[in-house]
Amino acid sequence: MSALNTGRTAVPTQTGVGAAVRTRLRGRRRDTGAIWRGLFFASAIFLVISIAAILVMVGRQAAALFTQVRPLAFLFGRVWAPEHGLYGALPFLVGSLAATGLALLIGVPLGLAGAIYLAKLATPRAQRVMRPAIELLAGIPSVVYGWVGLTALVPFIRRHSGHVTGFGLLAAGVVLAVMVLPTFISLAEDALRAVPQDIEHGSLALGTTRWQTIAHVLIPAAWPGIAAAGILSMARAIGETMAVQMVLGNSPVIPAGLIVPASTLTSEIVLEMGSTPQGSPANNALFAMGLLLLLISLGLIIAVRATRKEATAGVRQAH
């Protein structure tokens, strides 16, 4: 202590604070580490348990349906009439696939253009506008998309097509296209930026135009990443519920056109889940549709994993 008070540089002493702190420091410590390690691990395992529980719980209800309805009659049945014991989910499956396909048809070209713009053409200032805009687009709640679709897009389609309502796959496809844009753009932009610059410079040095380089070098090189962006957008579109339900018109038949009322797996589930008694075949059929959605989503995730592996392999080759 005296060392402190004399103003001289203190040195460790065997008395006073030095000794006191030293004794404590060299003492045994209580090891709570193991408890924390256990909690961290348990948290991680909780994720595994969650996905397993979802598969089991949804799968169990679906299995209950299949004791009464043959899986093929469910999957390929064209008529959905629970009151007559008919549980054909084909209209919904077709609706989901058609709406998703339409969304990608519109969303992917637009999104790819947006990604190219952001990755290669936009000035820093334009980027400062575009990036937050895309984040906002991602943040808009899906019911709000549905509400705008219902109050603006559906009447617009009605006016310009001459159809009675304006509901249908076209409206769903357009709404979904906008909704998948943020997912697609951010992933595709990452893919474009991940292409090594020397490849690009190599092409430019040969006297090609900027666009030739983008179209013939950049996009092919980034292709696996762009494909992954497309697949994830597809997963997002096929699982989207509220916005789609609000603009579809909800008719459980295989749609005869793009501007007639239709249904998807998700829209049918959300409409009926609260109003069918638990354990009834009609309720179980909703779980079977949920299982179908779940399997499609998991399949898409596996596909994305495969393209990602290809992408890393491609980049490694490029180097």
Partner: peptide
Amino acid sequence: ATESLASVPSIVFGLF
């Protein structure tokens, strides 16, 4: 599991 959980449609969470 984390990636799969991220891909599960929200309506399926609702059913669950």
